[in-house]
Design a protein around this nucleic acid. Structure first.
Length: 108
DNA sequence: AGTCGCCACGAAG
DNA sequence: CTTCGTGGCGACT
């Protein structure tokens, strides 16, 4: 069970997302100064601290839900959406209903 | 040591 | 829609 420094940064940043807000993979990547949001997704996929690290609050930049527990569609992804809706986040037509719910990290 | 191929992405065409 | 850039990482050689 090894956690790389990069993963540590990702999990640390994601932990800053408040309840009722969501961040994007790009937002997280920008926060930790990683040029590849894809790498962030890869780290979250291996998230060993779920659900302590609220990886379900990270969505794609086009405001679609992104993935969850290795799945990019199907009932598993629906569970992610359900979790978010339980926190007051609504999705309409497969995309985030209220973009003002987006959480943007402070620039370092 | 290097290389290769995979990704829960994003931007551009 | 498709393709390309991208950074990190595991599995190889």
């Amino acid at each position: 069970m090894s956690v790389t420094l990069f993963q540590q940064r990702v999990y640390d940043a994601v932990s800053l997302i408040p309840v009722g807000r969501v961040a994007t993979y790009k937002g997280v990547a920008d926060r930790i100064r990683c040029g590849s949001p894809r790498a962030v997704g890869q780290a979250l996929r291996l998230n060993p601290f779920a659900p302590s690290v609220p990886c379900h609050r990270v969505i794609a930049s086009d405001l679609t839900p992104g993935g969850f527990q290795g799945e990019r569609a199907g009932p598993v992804l629906r569970r992610k959406v359900r979790l978010l809706e339980h926190e007051g986040i609504r999705f309409t037509g497969g995309r985030l209903a209220e973009p003002e719910r987006l959480f943007t990290f402070e620039r370092v």
